[in-house]
Design a protein around this nucleic acid. Sequence first.
DNA 1: TATAATATTAGTAACGATTATCATTATGGT
DNA 2: ACCATAATGATAATCGTTACTAATATTATA
Lengths: 144, 144
Amino acid sequence: MITDQEEISRRLNIKGYRLTKQRLAVLKVLQSTKSHPDANWIYEKVRKEIPQVSLGTIYRTLGILKEAGLLRELNYASSLSHYDANTENHAHVVCTNCGRIDDLPLSLPHKLEVQASKATDFLIADHRLEFYGLCPHCCPSSAD
Amino acid sequence: MITDQEEISRRLNIKGYRLTKQRLAVLKVLQSTKSHPDANWIYEKVRKEIPQVSLGTIYRTLGILKEAGLLRELNYASSLSHYDANTENHAHVVCTNCGRIDDLPLSLPHKLEVQASKATDFLIADHRLEFYGLCPHCCPSSAD
DNA sequence: TATAATATTAGTAACGATTATCATTATGGT
DNA sequence: ACCATAATGATAATCGTTACTAATATTATA
């Protein structure tokens, strides 16, 4: 998670983008939460600081921050994009009832990536590992 | 892949659905291809057999067939749903350039599923493993 | 500090995939 | 054949996301 403003600015400049208060606000909001919010949630949070901000700016900004490697986009079954300030590749657990998404400190064994590369003639660059199930709140017979 | 019409009918009936020629046509089209087509592609194919079919029926049917366990829905970054007649859990490779999706005869080691279950308090029921990269056609310096 | 060149914004319209609505048609059981 | 109910086709509505545009802000340069 990149919090140094100089570094954020540098990363944007590489791509020809400027660091504006809107962009910083979006990134700060995203970095301030462990959840994986969608664009609208970020919009509502940013509005508290910059009331006249528009949803279009949020979308544009998220795309730019992603391009600059400052966040990662996740697409789930809801056909709604969620964003994550953690750009390290990691697994997720998704609640199929309420949509909650948690990180999972788990990485795919290198062996499996090699196996995948051998099994296809695609040039593999990345992967995604997701688990689906019910979160504690949605679990019908939880013991807690 | 379930091809026996009796069995297809039985699976639909369990959920209170009937087997119609539109539903059979959608399933047949999906079973006839190794690709993972989207609703519109299926629509175009089904139209050749049933010209007056509507796109709404395709969507409705795909949802019902999924509910009956006759197909699986995949959601990718394109925010477009793709469908797969293979209901076995398996990995996919997705071309980040042209969107082509291939099967990968690879399954997650059971050990990893156990590891995931221990790392979270979610009740895990399913998982998805996807690799991203470039397919042979989109690979800039392919040796073939 | 003025000025020009360019990037960014807010606001709004447009888009595309998917869903809902509804009158008509088909199906299955009696 | 008749009735109850499910399914269809056509079309309108929905919703997340993108594109457009005139106004504003930022940066570089003189």
